[in-house]
């Protein structure tokens, strides 16, 4: 059957809102901007990173923010040979669940091995590669360039095998 002649029109969707991040997510994002990572203590004393406002199992409100390390262990990974638009790296990389030092749960981020799929493995140690600090007096336009830390999960450019940065 021949492909019918179909009229199509482009439709681009935006979500241009500003949202208040609150005391828990806000604390995590603020810490990122300052160059460190925090988690939160769950009802049974485990450290959840990134922090959540309510315990995932008991639904208790959580409040005890604790600092964790910026290095840790890869607990699972997938190799993205052809990155999609928007993903943090434009060369082959790994999405990884990373259990940071001092944390009891793993966090999703990306690992850059210079494009080498053989250089990542479950259990390997990785460390955050940070963007530079936010310059004093930076404008909103400066923040939008992505060149420095602004309080975003992307303030960590990527994780790299420990010892490489």
């Amino acid at each position: 059957m021949a492909e019918p002649d179909v009229l199509v029109a482009p439709s681009t969707i935006e979500y241009p809102f500003r949202r208040t991040t609150g005391p828990v997510i806000g604390a995590f994002l603020t810490a990122l901007r300052e160059g460190f990572l925090v988690g939160i203590k769950s009802s049974d004393g485990k450290v959840i990173v990134p922090p959540v406002e309510y315990d995932p199992y008991t639904a208790d409100a959580l409040t005890e923010i604790v600092e964790v390390g910026d290095a840790g262990e890869v607990t699972a990974w997938s190799w993205v040979a052809e990155p999609l638009d928007g993903q943090p790296l434009d060369r082959p990389f790994a999405f990884a669940l990373i259990k940071l030092d001092g944390a009891d749960t793993a966090m999703l981020h990306v690992v850059d091995t210079g494009g080498d799929p053989a250089a990542i493995a479950t259990g390997m140690r990785v460390r955050a590669r940070w963007k530079p600090p936010r310059p004093v007096g930076a404008s909103e336009e400066d923040d939008a360039t992505g060149a420095h830390r602004v309080g975003s999960i992307l303030d960590i450019e990527c994780f790299v095998p420990e010892g490489e940065n």
């Binding site: 949202r19 991040t21 997510i25 995590f28 994002l29 990134p50 607990t75 699972a76 990974w77 997938s78 190799w79 993205v80 999609l84 638009d85 928007g86 993903q87 943090p88 999405f95 990884a96 669940l97 966090m107 999703l108 981020h109 990306v110 479950t122 975003s152 999960i153 992307l154």
Partner: peptide, 25 residues
Amino acid sequence: DPYYLAPMWPDPVSLAALQARAALD
């Protein structure tokens, strides 16, 4: 999640692959 995940554009295939890796391991 708009704060912890969406900025990295983690697609469903990559996330399922993480799960497959964990299950294989």
